[in-house]
Amino acid sequence: MSKDVAVLGVGMHPWGKWGQSFVKYGVAAARAALADSGVNWQDVDFIVGGETVRNGYGGYVAGATFAQALGWNGARVATSYAACATGAQALDTARARILAGLSEVALVVGADTTPKGFLAPVAGERWDDPDWLRFRLMGMTNPAYFALNARRRIDLYGATAEDFANVKVKNAKHGLNNPNARYRKEVTVENVLASPVVSNPLHLLDICATSDGGAAILLTSMEYARKMGIAEPVRIKAISTVTPTFPQTIMDMPNFSTDSSSAVPAPERTFKESIGYAAYEEAGISPEDVDVAEVYDLATSVELDWIEDLALCKRGEAEHLLRAGDTSIGGRIPVNPSGGLACFGEAVPAQALAQVCELTWQLRGQAEGRQVEGARIGITANQGLFGHGSSVIVSA
Rank of each mutant, 00 (worst) to 15 (best):
V292N: 06
P334E: 12
A311C: 00
R315Y: 06
L312H: 05
T327D: 02
K314P: 11
L312N: 06
S338G: 07
S328I: 02
I333V: 15
V335C: 01
S338D: 01
L310Y: 08
G339K: 03
A318M: 13
V292S: 10
V292I: 14
E294W: 02
C343T: 01
D326F: 08
L321K: 04
S328P: 06
A293H: 12
G331A: 09
I307L: 05
E303T: 09
V292H: 06
E308G: 07
A293T: 15
A293W: 06
E294H: 01
A311K: 13
G325W: 01
D289M: 09
G331E: 12
S328K: 14
L322K: 02
D309F: 09
L341C: 09
D291K: 08
E294P: 02
D291S: 14
G331C: 11
L341G: 03
A324F: 06
E303K: 07
I333F: 12
D297N: 10
E288F: 13
D289S: 09
L322T: 03
H320W: 09
K314Y: 05
K314H: 14
A299T: 07
C313H: 07
A299D: 06
D291I: 09
E294T: 07
E317S: 12
L312D: 04
I307W: 00
T300H: 02
D291G: 13
D291T: 12
E308N: 10
C313M: 11
S301C: 10
I329G: 14
D297W: 02
L304C: 08
G316Y: 11
T327K: 06
G331R: 09
N336Y: 00
H320V: 15
L312Q: 10
